[in-house]
Design a protein around this nucleic acid. Structure first.
Lengths: 167, 167
DNA sequence: CGCAGAATCACCCAAAAGGAGGACGCGAAA
DNA sequence: TTTCGCGTCCTCCTTTTGGGTGATTCTGCG
């Protein structure tokens, strides 16, 4: 257990990043390999095709190292799937019913206006918040009423809620 | 182009998997490289350290190929995260917030009218359903707006929902 | 019974909302 | 290039709302 403790201390002092350590190992192995191969060549493989054997060995070994390196570097991050218990806050889990939105041909802008209406804002207030003129808002609302088949904004709100257009 | 046609036929018969094809390419490239290097060596690099240069080149190139291969082979599987929308039974049980109702001094009749408003009915329609005159409805609505501190019926609906007066 | 609070109705007026039509610019699609 | 959808803005007009005041039943409670 003492060894472990010392190791930990060392690590905390040096703290070499894993990538750098990898490169280091790579270089050392490569160097050793060269030396090894030279020794081998000069002692046993002084043959006709020593060059091809040498190249092949280097190729194979470095290819293996490359594959290993590739795996090491691209080791995908561990994905932690955590299941969270949501207390089902009704207004937080609103999913826009894009189906009925598209079916009715309601545009993004109109949906925006619709939400303002649902908040109980007047045409003028909506115009202020949407940075457009009252006339534009009235046009939008007119189209919204048309598409929803409503006659009043209150009715439009009700219908929009039924169709999942607004929370 | 007869060759191409024949190739295509072959492919459709063999149907080489991508991994095998990769190995094939790898081998071919390796072979070409060897040939290339031999040519280079015999012509220009007949030097003292030609062996080291040769080995280094092979090492670098095959290492790169290895990394590429490693990446290719370990392409992480696509993780599909699917969020499932659990249908929340919203209209389960609506409990009238009698506390805020009494705090605001809203009467039963006014609550009735309030619900009609929330349904998107016009004053006239409410009058019909409540069997009273439009004027009466207007009076009620006026008081409702007053007590809720609203300026429009849409706003009244919004505020009433916030206070739990209507579902 | 008498009274307070509610519900009902009426009339008026101003503001807001809604309907119909036209017009313009812009960007994407045909 | 032309067409089309969208967003923007406008005018003129009608309908609906909202706010105020006043008045008349109705109803529950001390």
């Amino acid at each position: 257990m003492t060894r472990d403790a010392r190791n930990d201390t060392r690590r905390s002092e040096w703290h070499i990043p894993s990538v750098k350590r990898t490169v280091l190992i790579y270089g050392v192995v490569g160097g050793l390999l060269i030396v090894l191969l030279r020794g081998i060549e000069y002692r046993y493989l002084v043959l006709e095709h020593s060059l091809e054997i040498y190249g092949g060995l280097v190729a194979v070994i470095f290819a293996a190292l490359g594959i290993w390196l590739g795996l090491k570097l691209t080791r995908p991050p561990v994905v932690v799937v955590r299941e969270v218990q949501i207390p089902v806050p009704a207004p937080l889990t609103f999913a826009l019913n894009t189906a009925s939105q598209e079916a009715l041909g309601i545009t993004k802008r109109e949906l925006e206006i619709l939400e303002f209406i649902a908040q109980g804002l007047s045409t003028r207030e909506i115009a202020e918040r949407a940075f457009v003129s009252e006339n534009t808002v009235k046009t939008h609302i007119g189209r919204i009423l048309d598409k929803l088949g409503a006659r009043r904004r209150t009715q439009a709100v009700q219908l929009a809620k039924e169709r999942g257009l607004i929370p």
